[in-house]
Design a protein around this nucleic acid. Structure first.
Lengths: 193, 193
DNA sequence: CGAAAAAATTAAAGTAGTTGAAGAAATCAG
DNA sequence: CTGATTTCTTCAACTACTTTAATTTTTTCG
């Protein structure tokens, strides 16, 4: 599997020498998911942090009525997982499912801990990753409080233009917290207006 | 100002010896806020991370119509700030305002960096803090997608029973993303039903 | 390719939550 | 303690969004 995207992603934040990079790569396992296959299911423990090399996934919960609520999408160059479950060993409340055929690089918790020991810089890398994720989530909460559905859709398209093409509207609706029917109406208005 | 709560808070996650604790405390400055005073205003840069020793604050944005949207409350033992602004030096989009007379312990970015250098354990402490905040925000996004207003209010009261007594309903409504009028109606139904 | 399944559109009726306005209750500051 | 201000409640009209259901369009995969 192509590991250069992972090294590039890490290189954006910390500098690794050749030996460190080699050691790091030795701790990651490749994993391939067919479309609609699960990386994680509600009730399982999340045993790895996952870097997406190719493809697209969704992280979502299912409510008691079977409705899907999407917490995040992930594409090439993104990290996905359920951090709470990964860190605590508790059962996850989320599903992670491939929307396209997907290739991942996975690291388990013991291996990540070993990585922190041997390459302390990596602790910094994951802290930065976490900071960015935290900030993005804070911004999403702010938007869910201050924007109506049309505004949230506009921001989504502005921020992730690629997703508009790539991800079915139904899934975008499940991310925005509205029905596919209403999203279709919003889009019609946008086209006309 | 009473610093034992801060040491206890840190001690929950990492062990400091007496010298480290003393050094750490030397980097924190006390700050007192009267009710309705601002710790941070939209447009300013957030220069400190802030530990609440006593009192209560809200972190919120104001939209173009002047409506308040509350991202979080903070009480004794919590940390507040605008991480994005603090880390990047960019202008904050949030206000932080005291809901009661409040006492804080503040650390600036240069001092925090120095702390990381001299007491590397503290890097771990703030990573854990960040992880917990990230997980809490993820859960809040999930709730905003999957629960209606009554459900969100129920979860809020269940999770933060103290806040129900301490914080005006109007502010709780601004946290839940509903109007005070509608919250009042929900509460009436809960009493009756 | 072609049949089957999934996703998108449209319309009409229904509901959760908002708005505005007015009075009552609680809280604040001097 | 007291007047002024803010908050809470109630009601009725309104709107953003949902639900159901039928039709069309697109995508999937054998």
């Amino acid at each position: 599997m192509n590991t250069s995207l992972l090294l590039q992603n890490i290189g954006n934040h910390v500098q690794l020498d050749a030996g460190e990079a080699e050691f790091l790569l030795s701790l990651f396992q490749p994993k391939v998911l067919k479309r609609k296959a699960f990386l994680l299911r509600q009730g399982e423990v999340c045993r790895s942090e996952n870097f997406i090399v190719k493809g697209c996934v969704k992280v979502y919960s299912l409510d008691e009525n079977g409705f899907e609520h999407i917490l995040m999408f992930g594409i090439e160059g993104w990290w996905v997982g359920d951090l709470l479950s990964f860190l605590t060993g508790r059962e996850s409340r989320y599903h992670i499912e491939a929307l396209e055929d997907t290739e991942l690089l996975q690291i388990t918790k013991p291996d990540l801990d070993q990585l922190y020991e041997q390459v302390p810089k990596m602790e910094r890398f994951f802290r930065i990753l976490l900071q960015n994720a935290f900030i993005a989530h804070m911004e999403r909460i702010n938007q869910s409080l201050s924007l109506d559905a049309a505004g949230r859709y506009g921001e989504f398209i502005r921020k992730y233009p690629a997703f508009g093409q790539r991800i079915p509207q139904k899934q975008i609706a499940a991310y925005l917290g509205i029905t596919p029917v209403f999203l279709s109406m919003l889009r019609k208005k946008l086209m006309e207006g």
